[in-house]
């Protein structure tokens, strides 16, 4: 579990880096660009963060889902409100979609019997979690790089 906490800290740092990097140049954005950037960054960030948070929390499904929905709404609104409130709707919608998907993936990783995936060994379960969380972290890092690179194009 300690490795997943480390990956979660890395992901939060990447999301903050993306947010402040976008915020520093927010005068350059036009309308379509703001919507594209908001939906891309919000969807990827909330999916990966929701997955990690769900894997780490051991409460019931309702409480985990409620907390994650609040987290997704906050992230979506923050990314959407960079420009003059044009893209809050896109940010909110994509944040809620992404965090629901993240909660589903996290629940399946914690208990693979839901999807009738034949994994029962505890070591193999932990290995599965580490592999998918590391893969998601790589994807988030790559997409943050692409989003920040898109301001130079």
């Amino acid at each position: 579990m300690l490795g997943i906490i480390g990956l979660l800290i890395w992901n939060v740092a990447a999301a903050c880096f993306c947010y402040f990097g976008l915020r520093r140049r927010k005068q350059l954005f036009d309308d379509r660009y703001a919507t594209t950037i908001t939906s891309t960054a919000t969807l990827c960030t909330t999916l990966v963060l929701g997955m990690h948070v769900t894997v780490l929390m051991s409460a019931g499904l309702s409480l985990v889902f409620l907390l994650n929905l609040l987290l997704g709404a906050v992230i979506g609104t923050l990314f959407g409100a960079l420009v003059k409130y044009h893209s809050v709707l896109a940010g909110l919608y994509n944040g809620l979609i992404g965090i629901s998907m993240g909660v589903m993936i996290g629940e399946v990783l914690k208990n693979p019997q839901i999807c009738s995936i034949p994994i029962s060994d505890h070591t193999q379960l932990l290995l599965n979690m580490y592999q998918l969380c590391g893969f998601a972290t790589l994807l988030l890092t790559m997409i943050v790089g692409l989003v920040l690179y898109s301001m130079k194009v």
């Binding site: 379509r32 660009y33 594209t36 950037i37 939906s39 891309t40 969807l43 990827c44 999916l47 979609i97 992404g98 998907m101 589903m104 993936i105 399946v108 999807c115 009738s116 995936i117 994807l139 997409i143 692409l146 989003v147 898109s150 194009v153």
Partner: peptide, 25 residues
């Protein structure tokens, strides 16, 4: 376009995370 590329990339990511789970049920 570059922005179109970003949109397609992220949509493929979300669907690809979901699809094996859907097939397993």
């Amino acid at each position: 376009d570059y922005q179109t590329m970003l949109t397609g990339l992220v949509n493929g990511l979300m669907m690809g995370m979901m699809a094996p789970m859907l097939g397993a049920i």
